[in-house]
């Protein structure tokens, strides 16, 4: 008698559904299966209409973010054995509009990402067109550069859920990644985003974003360090500039 596990998925097809509903599937269980593999089994063998995003299967592309039993995780690195024999509930990432089944609308994040100018801004490109950077200089921004834009932090952040104008943990962490990079000279250009009510000041340090980040980016740190930067900018703006 082979083992099975129940996976309950949120379903939403806008052409037929006024609101989401849940559908439970019985999936054969072996203890090496990830949640993503469970969803793939459902789509391949049980219900081809189930819609979800995935790509690399190894926690680097950032596509397969889901809510599993109410916690934002990457489906490819979350294992069914940690829930078996209980039922596993899979829902789309919180705080984003649902497009279809487990797929969310990320366009708001993409706007936020663009607004923080996530690229090295430099007028002083060196002669040989390569920069030099010490290990210590790299340490200043390295962890923030590991972001894979998976949006788990946005699903974790209640302030983003309550107010989607908030720039949010991921975009602000990337903003800090560039401000902290010794090659970058664009800090002043990014301060407008930092200083706004929906910039760093939308954060109340719940800290759940850093808890769920699969890459150890620690967006809570990036945002809250910039509260000090923003405060310095506020009080010393006429003095220092």
């Amino acid at each position: 008698m082979s083992k099975t596990i129940q996976i309950e998925c949120l379903r939403y097809h806008p052409e037929t559904d006024a609101e989401p509903r849940y559908q439970t599937y019985e999936v054969p269980f072996t203890d090496d299966l990830s949640v993503l593999q469970g969803l793939q089994y459902i789509k391949d063998q049980l219900d081809g209409s189930l819609t979800f995003r995935w790509s690399c299967r190894m926690a680097i592309c950032g596509s397969c973010g889901q809510m599993v039993n109410g916690v934002p995780v990457l489906g490819c690195e979350t294992f069914l054995r940690d829930y078996y024999p209980e039922k596993v509930r899979v829902e789309p990432l919180n705080h984003f509009p649902i497009v279809r089944d487990l797929a969310i609308d990320q366009s708001d994040f993409l706007k936020k990402l663009e607004s923080v100018k996530p690229y090295v801004i430099s007028k002083n490109v060196p002669e040989r067109a390569t920069f030099r950077q010490t290990p210590r200089q790299m340490e200043d921004y390295y962890q923030y550069s590991k972001c894979i834009n998976c949006l788990l932090c946005y699903a974790a952040c209640p302030q983003y859920g309550l107010n989607s104008s908030f720039t949010g943990p991921g975009a602000l962490a990337l903003l800090h990644r560039y401000n902290a990079d010794s090659r970058d000279e664009g800090k002043n250009e990014r301060m407008k985003v930092v200083n706004a009510e929906d910039g760093v000041w939308g954060c109340t340090l719940v800290g759940y974003c850093s808890e769920v980040c699969p890459k150890g980016v620690d967006p809570a740190r990036a945002v809250n360090q910039n509260k000090i930067e923003s405060t310095k900018d506020y009080f010393f703006r006429f003095w220092l500039k």
Binding site: V193, N195, S230, T231
Partner: peptide
């Protein structure tokens, strides 16, 4: 995006 107004939060946040 709408014009980003500087917030006065730093005053209250410092306190």
């Amino acid at each position: 995006m709408a014009a980003l107004k500087r917030s006065n939060k730093p005053v209250f946040w410092s306190l």
